[in-house]
Design a protein around this nucleic acid. Structure first.
Lengths: 210, 210
DNA sequence: ATTGTATGCGAGCGGGGACTCGCGTAATCA
DNA sequence: TGATTACGCGAGTCCCCGCTCGCATACAAT
């Protein structure tokens, strides 16, 4: 920020600019996100943008930050008190929470996932992902306490969940929401069991029989 | 294309332009991909680009098309004659092939996955994905012949595989290649078994016990 | 009321990007 | 060899973009 908005008037303007930023980002995409357009959408002069934002990137950052923040809040709310119910065989509450967050603003989700250069916003994604990872690791450990590759399993699950949930929301495949949650749950449960079983049989091996 | 390059000289130039396009895309990223830079990199005048390409997008398209084409060829080669070995419990050849393709050109993979606006290149991705889907569906059907949700399972697996393989190559998590293949194999095998089992017990249900 | 400061404006600047056009040169053909 | 066509060049046009600056207005303090 270049200056603090002191009067109510200017604080409202800053809000209008951020809202306009979101709108332009959704309507025109990342490539169409220009300062002039944002100003116009906000009903504000181009010069006014730069009273409180140092540059174009700052506006974008603010929009993205708020999106992730909003998502984090939604996730926690959706999880609610169902955290206790989570077991390796029942990860439905986490998956449901994840989906709920994703579904809140599909238009922005699309831009964030399909148009933003990922490199510049890598850290901002963490809040939500970290929470999923937390719960996943707990589930993995519950099944096999001394697995040296438990971290690998957590990584696999987190990446898979995040991307499957995202694509389900964006590409709208013909899969019912409850069915989908069921599939993801089976994916996690099956994976964890399969791993536990392989380890019990004789450590990590190249071939497994049914 | 605007004109056919007739002489050998001009055909070479077109090749140089495409190669330069790839180079600029990797070095400068999607946002830095400008016609002037491509021309300079190719050792060619800006005007010459437009002799054979209608616009900037056409150059980019050609680069991306060739990337996918190359990938498809690599996948088939890596699969080789091991296709016969694939079963629901052993999807390693497919995964290996997928990884091999991804590993061939990580720099370009990064740009394609993290910088290109996905919308404009949605169809080009298909060749590789379709092949994986083919093999996956076969594996799914092998385990349960009349599953009404077999297509869902195939979708889940394909999306998961594609993204896991991509992220593994790009984010270089600390997981050994063979271990990773093993994890993915467990993911698929475990998932398919879990589903088959759930169906056997009593159709799709909300709760499963270990 | 008067003065000082915060706010808002919008024409316009400097820059870079996509793309063109008219001209010189190399290849092809008769 | 002369004529015709293909090729290649690069200065230059037009456009849009990020961003600034001098000025007018609204608010706050005294």
């Amino acid at each position: 920020m270049r200056k603090e908005p002191r009067q109510a008037r200017s604080r409202e303007m800053v809000e209008r600019i951020i809202a306009a930023g979101r709108e332009v980002l959704v309507q025109a995409g990342y490539e169409g996100f220009s300062t002039n357009r944002v100003a116009e959408q906000a009903g504000v002069s181009p010069g006014s943008l730069y009273q409180y934002f140092p540059d174009k990137a700052a506006i974008l950052d603010e929009v993205i930050d708020r999106y992730w923040e909003h998502n984090a809040v939604l996730t926690e709310r959706a999880l609610g008190d169902r955290v206790a119910q989570i077991t390796p065989d029942n990860t439905r509450p986490v998956i449901d929470a994840l989906l709920t967050a994703m579904e809140a603003d599909p238009a922005l989700l699309r831009v964030v996932h399909e148009e933003l250069p990922q490199a510049r916003w890598r850290e901002r994604r963490t809040q939500l992902v970290r929470r999923v990872r937390e719960l996943t690791t707990a589930a993995a450990i519950a099944l096999s306490h001394d697995d040296p590759h438990a971290a690998d399993a957590a990584w696999v699950i987190v990446i898979a969940m995040e991307n499957l949930a995202t694509k389900w929301v964006l590409d709208r495949p013909d899969i019912d929401r409850d069915d989908f949650i069921e599939e993801l749950n089976a994916l996690v449960a099956g994976y964890l069991h399969q791993r536990a079983q392989s380890r019990a049989v004789g450590g990590r091996q190249r071939t497994t029989s049914s």
